[in-house]
């Protein structure tokens, strides 16, 4: 097992290097560069922009910029410097990590806690009204774009006279010490992103859970168990659900990385203090090392997620052996 994990990690190294080269190429292919945005500013002379380029190393050939960046990471663990914020990139990303994980984590919690029981119920009550309703909701859920859902929810809340839209807190609680009122305020805000971001995922898991369970309930060993006269609940929960959930477990590992990088657009619409909008700004401004580090970080999370998924699968399914 340890051997396997170690090998997977070693394998990540060349992969990450290739990813970084590709990412850097993509970023460098963008027309314009950091500094272009300053021309219209009355305080900035073209010489200043030239100066800035030289200091940021933007006047060097692309491969040199890349190598300098990699060298920094390898020798000092330094992921570069944000042009816009004048601070180490790693620090900036770390600062935004907390809320990103909170939003992603609670979305995962929300989707799984709802989706799994509903999926099981739907499957065990196939073709009931309940099943039809949730099948339909599931279909709708995967068909509505996240950003559209966010817009709709914000519009609905506003038109009903609500005020808790956008962000995670009312402004008076930002930076305030934790209190019950603050938690309540958070809850008043966070449900919109949870639904906007989570609905599609929930619908997907729900459909998958229902499908898997139905497949398994049709299989012979379940029939056998029933024929043996086992209690229906035991059949379903002890045998069928356990097996039906396995394929979902592999999805679970990928949830966090997907949510971190996959919710950029809704996070922009909803004004969340997470990494998505931050990355988008950096991309627009061509703050290259920030963009690079974020991309690398997301890719790394994807790789880890994959590994975790495989490990989890091996853990719950003794038939799978890692070697």
């Amino acid at each position: 097992m340890m051997n396997y994990i170690l090998r997977r990690f070693l394998y990540m190294i060349p992969l990450m290097i290739l990813i970084s080269i590709l990412s850097f190429t993509v970023i460098k292919l963008q027309p314009g560069e950091f500094g272009s945005q300053y021309f219209s500013n009355p305080r900035v002379s073209p010489e200043t922009v030239e100066n800035l380029r030289a200091r940021l190393g933007l006047d060097q050939p692309t491969y040199m910029q890349y190598l300098t960046w990699v060298k920094g990471i390898v020798t000092e663990g330094d992921f570069g410097y944000s042009f816009a914020y004048k601070r180490p990139v790693a620090e900036l990303i770390w600062e935004r990590m907390g809320w990103t994980v909170v939003v992603a984590g609670s979305t995962i919690l929300f989707t799984w806690v709802l989706a799994i029981p509903i999926g099981i119920f739907s499957a065990t009550h196939k073709y009931s009204i309940f099943d039809y309703v949730f099948t339909f909701i599931g279909f709708i859920g995967i068909s509505v774009p996240n950003f559209f859902m966010a817009l709709l929810l914000m519009y609905l809340v506003l038109s009903m006279g609500g005020t808790e839209v956008g962000g995670l807190f009312s402004q008076q609680y930002i930076g305030a010490p934790w209190s019950i009122a603050k938690v309540i305020d958070l809850l008043k805000h966070i449900w919109i992103p949870l639904i906007a971001i989570g609905t599609a995922g929930m619908a997907g898991i729900l459909r998958q859970m229902r499908g898997n369970l139905l497949d398994i309930l049709g299989e012979q060993y379940v029939q056998t168990a029933r024929a043996k006269g086992l209690n229906e609940n035991v059949v379903i929960y002890k045998h069928a659900v356990r097996n039906a959930i396995n394929p979902l477990i592999s999805m679970f590992g990928m949830q966090l990385p997907k949510l971190i990088s996959g919710t950029i657009i809704s996070a922009i619409v909803l004004n969340l203090p997470t990494m998505g909008p931050f990355f988008y700004d950096a991309l627009i401004n061509q703050d290259q090392y920030l963009v690079m580090t974020f991309l690398m970080f997301s890719a790394f999370m994807m790789l880890i997620g994959n590994l975790i998924a495989d490990l989890l699968l091996a853990l719950v399914d003794p038939r799978i052996r890692l070697d």
Binding site: S23, V26, P31, G262, Y280, L295, M301
Partner: peptide
């Protein structure tokens, strides 16, 4: 495997910015 390790939406955004204006 390499391509699949890319976070999808960020790389889409980055790629769409390459398109010459």
């Amino acid at each position: 495997e390499l391509l699949r390790s890319f976070p999808r939406i960020p790389i889409w955004l980055a790629l769409s910015m390459i398109l010459p204006p």
